[in-house]
Amino acid sequence: MAPVVHGFDWPDRFVVGTIGDPGERTFYLQAKAGREVVSVALEKQQSAQLAAGIDHILDELRAQDGNPYHVPADMPEELRDDEPLDGPVLEQFRVGTMTLGWDPSTSQIVIEAMPITTIDDEDEDGLDEEPEPDELLVVRIPVGSARAFALRTREVVAAGRPLCPLCGSPMSPDRPHECRLPDDQP
Rank of each mutant, 00 (worst) to 15 (best):
P104L: 09
A51V: 02
R154I: 01
P173K: 04
R161H: 08
P115S: 03
V4N: 06
T106Y: 03
G20Y: 08
R80T: 05
V16I: 15
D183A: 13
Q46W: 00
E135P: 02
E112Q: 06
A51Y: 01
I116P: 03
D123L: 02
P11S: 08
E178H: 06
S105C: 03
S169M: 14
D120S: 15
S107G: 00
E132V: 15
R25L: 04
S169E: 15
D125H: 07
S107Y: 03
P142M: 08
G96T: 13
P115Y: 02
D21E: 15
R94P: 03
L100G: 05
R13Y: 06
E77L: 10
E122M: 14
D184C: 02
A33Y: 03
R180C: 04
L29W: 07
A158S: 13
C167P: 14
M75E: 10
D103A: 11
S145N: 08
Y69K: 03
D21N: 12
E91W: 01
E78V: 07
V139W: 05
F14K: 11
R180I: 02
D59L: 02
E130D: 14
R13N: 09
V5G: 05
P131E: 09
A146V: 08
F14S: 11
T18M: 00
M114I: 02
D174S: 10
V5L: 13
E112S: 03
M171W: 00
P3E: 11
G34K: 04
S107A: 12
D103C: 06
L61E: 03
I57D: 00
Q45T: 07
R175W: 09
R94A: 09
